[in-house]
């Protein structure tokens, strides 16, 4: 009897195992997904941030897109040059040089500089505040100050300073474009850190109104255009820099500005 029990146990378990194993073997044959080994190799060198800066939904999708020839090897801005070279060597192609870019916030109208038109008690989110009356500040082009960009940053490269404005840590910034998309007022742009001169204002109101609402607004005086008329243009009472590959910015332009809306080599951490 005792021996019988051993035999029964062994055979019933063995039979069950065999049955399910054969079922799985059969299923594997039917349902197997062939994966290009290159996709896995590329996935390993990617930063795995799944940020979507490359335009693909996450790193695995980007790896697949590269292998299928949809995306280019250097499109992962987060990984930068190093990752681009690694992917290029996996794919057996030559990588192009990647231009590093960082996020720049084009508003300096913090709590101290701007006028208040109301007190906002709603959800602390820029995208929502922008829809209900446009937040607290009287300038309708300004930073709302509810930190949607900071929340969107996955790399801890942004935070709000004491003046209620977002600050970018340019070394930590990976130019993933998340904050650019998060800002309902389109105040954030990606630019090469080599460019020294920027207009830190998006106010298109006439000078009189702009001056009233914010101390550091562009009042459309056109003084900055004179030293560099080729690259700086006036559009709707606002000085706009036409960025080109060779553009670096002239210091004179910033010196002329009466409100400091245009600044040269602004310290990124302030």
């Amino acid at each position: 009897m005792e021996q019988n029990l051993y035999l029964l146990g062994l055979s019933s378990m063995g039979g069950l195992g065999l049955f399910f194993a054969s079922l799985l073997v059969f299923a594997d044959k039917k349902l197997r997904v062939e994966v290009d080994p290159k996709i896995l190799l590329i996935e390993e060198v990617l930063p795995a941030a799944n940020c979507g800066a490359c335009g693909q939904p996450g790193c695995p999708a980007f790896a697949e897109a590269v292998v299928n020839g949809i995306a280019d090897v250097h499109e992962c801005t987060v990984g930068g040059e190093e990752v681009a070279h690694q992917i290029a060597s996996i794919m057996g192609v030559e990588a192009k040089a990647v231009q590093k870019k960082v996020a720049k916030v084009f508003c300096r109208g913090g709590n101290k500089e701007t006028d208040r038109k109301a007190i906002y008690y709603g959800v602390t989110s820029c995208s929502l505040a922008a829809k209900v009356g446009g937040g607290e500040k009287s300038c309708k082009y300004s930073c709302l100050g509810y930190a949607d960009c900071v929340d969107s940053c996955k790399f801890n490269a942004m935070w709000m300073n004491a003046n209620g404005l977002p600050v970018v840590d340019e070394d930590a910034c990976t130019s993933c474009n998340k904050c650019v998309e998060a800002c309902p007022r389109n105040l954030i742009e990606l630019h090469s850190p080599d460019i020294k001169l920027h207009v830190y204002c998006k106010n298109r109101d006439p000078g009189k109104i702009a001056k009233k609402t914010c101390k550091v607004a562009c009042i459309g005086c056109t003084l900055c255009v004179k030293p560099d008329p080729e690259n700086i243009k006036m559009v709707d009472n606002l000085a706009v820099i036409e960025y080109s590959d060779a553009y670096l910015g002239l210091e004179e332009c910033a010196k002329k500005c009466p409100t400091n809306a245009i600044a040269y080599q602004l310290d990124p951490i302030h």
């Binding site: 019933s12 378990m13 069950l16 195992g17 399910f20 194993a21 079922l23 799985l24 299923a27 594997d28 349902l31 197997r32 997904v33």
Partner: peptide, 20 residues
């Protein structure tokens, strides 16, 4: 033991199906 065998193989099957 036998129930665990059933569950493990069924999950494996579902995983293959979802992956595909």
């Amino acid at each position: 033991v036998s129930f665990i065998i059933v569950i493990a193989s069924m999950v494996q099957l579902v995983e293959m199906f979802v992956k595909k």
